[in-house]
Design a protein around this nucleic acid. Structure first.
Length: 286
DNA sequence: AGATCGCCCTGCTTGC
DNA sequence: TGCAAGCAGGGCGATC
């Protein structure tokens, strides 16, 4: 499922293949894909028509295409299974094709939003003076953002009565981290997912953030190599990075540090993968 | 207001 | 073989 590195790979692909092009026609094949565009499919298509796409931007897992001179943008979230593909005209429709955007040029390609589980979607929003879609204002900067405020993040962690994995997944504290990279960064940091945030020292927070960045950069480097054509790569999986995972999905397999079999625990209606030896659970609160 | 829970959705896997 | 349950899970609104 796409987390920050996968979304950034898509952003780069869109910058290369869609930036600077002018929209001709938009076709909405499934209304749920634009459910966050409250004015509906016809309005969505009308307002895209004739707009020129600027440089795609991203914050966390949100991606948007500024529409030059309109004060608006097309916001995209890939959800669990969303893909943005640049395909030649006439390529067979994907089974879960939801939105098609044609351009007013002769490049011979179109933009497609494909989404099996329809957790993702496209919508149009005003862009605020700081360059963000209005509905993204509550999303924190992501750890690859040079302006990410590590001190503020640490302070927020200490103030929260929460646990470290919950905090990593809280997009208002830090964005772009999903279940996979949270488990990977916690494994690298030897932190148990239920460690109370209030117990983290500043050096531990720094170390954790360093591992979040390292694992994301490693995934980004690999994901980037698979992008070399008209295909704007998001395969809905971890791509080539999957083989590099140390924790996620490795239940029962030996820890790469200590050989102890990894465990999977039900957690918030999903799963946490961890090493029971390297990542000791916190002492129960009294 | 911060924390928690349930829901949205479909395809693959598992179990009876 | 067939069907149902389980699982994957990001984000958001409702609730406490």
């Amino acid at each position: 499922m796409p987390e920050l590195p996968e979304v950034e790979v898509v952003r780069r692909g869109l910058e290369r293949w869609v930036g600077g092009r002018t929209v001709a026609e938009t076709e909405v094949l499934h209304p749920r894909a634009i459910r966050r565009h409250l004015a509906g499919a016809a309005d969505f298509a009308d307002r895209l028509r004739g707009a020129r796409v600027g440089t795609p931007r991203r914050r966390g897992k949100y991606l948007w295409l500024p529409l030059e001179g309109t004060g608006h943008c097309v916001l995209a979230h890939l959800g669990m299974s969303g893909q943005l593909l640049v395909q030649p005209h006439g390529a067979p429709d994907e089974k879960h094709l939801r939105v098609r955007v044609r351009f007013a040029d002769t490049e011979g390609t179109e933009l497609r939003f494909v989404d099996q589980r329809t957790f993702g979607g496209l919508s149009l929003h005003p862009v605020t003076p700081d360059g963000l879609p209005d509905v993204v204002a509550h999303i924190a900067r992501d750890p690859l953002d040079p302006a990410f405020d590590e001190t503020a993040f640490h302070t927020a962690l200490r103030r929260r009565r929460s646990t470290v994995k919950r905090a990593l997944l809280d997009q208002s504290l830090i964005s772009g981290v999903g279940n996979i990279y949270a488990d990977e960064a916690l494994w690298r940091s030897r932190l148990h997912y239920d460690r109370p945030t209030a117990t983290l020292t500043r050096p531990r927070t720094t170390e954790l953030l360093g591992h979040v960045r390292d694992v994301m950069n490693a995934a980004l480097a690999v994901g980037g190599t698979s992008f070399d054509s008209l295909y704007v790569n998001v395969n809905g999986e971890s791509g080539y990075f999957e083989r590099s995972l140390d924790a996620y999905g490795r239940e029962g397999r030996p820890c790469r540090r200590c050989a102890t079999p990894l465990r999977r625990s039900p957690w918030m209606n999903r799963s946490s993968y961890f090493c029971p030896r390297c990542q000791r659970p916190p002492r129960p609160a009294r």
